[in-house]
Amino acid sequence: MLQIISVWIAGGLTLCIFSFLYGDNPVYKFAEHLYVGFSAAYWLIYVWHFTIKQMVINPIVAREPGAWMLIIPLFFGVLMLSRWLPERYSWISRWSIAFVVGIGAGIIAIGQTQGLLLPQLRATILPLATGNWMTNVNNFLVIIGTVSTLTYFYFSRRETGLMSKFSRLGIGFIMIALGAAFGYTIMARISLLIGRIIFLFGDWFHIIKPL
């Protein structure tokens, strides 16, 4: 019984959201507000249960080894609340923001260098005379595509002469890549739509056999 009710609620809300295709209307508004409200509440519970309780309170209460280190994030977390204090003291919250931003920038620098820059460098250093002309053409396209795209993202020089031509070639490569990515993602979205239609006509109306 409970399953039937939940299927009816899910199906009804799906139709409410689909009604947006006609235009903004009270039914869509209802589903939207319900969704936003529920998701905000869900995240509140999630943060309390999985972050504050499990990662801060429980280790401190259980006196786990190294739990004293949690005082640092806890301290910065409490500082964030100083935003509610009068203007004279609310600036203290910036310490927490500065801490998070600084750590984040450091992590990004390593991650981008190791995860993107060096693999790209490795993938572009390719020989152009492998003995197989198909591989040679492919390697040439990879090299010229990477070099011209890098040239497009060269900001501190005026785009004139050869640089301008290379930069235009670079934007050409970027657009081809974006077009391919667009088509690929549209296919993925259509599969999401198919999933919803199967739910509506299979699980709800029983017109088609659910997968």
């Binding site: 959201i17 589903a31 939207e32 969704y35 936003v36 529920f38 998701s39 905000a40 869900y42 995240w43």
Partner: peptide, 11 residues
């Protein structure tokens, strides 16, 4: 608004 991806998009 919310930290749920599509909840945010809907909002």
């Amino acid at each position: 608004l919310t930290s749920e991806q599509f909840g945010f998009a809907a909002g």
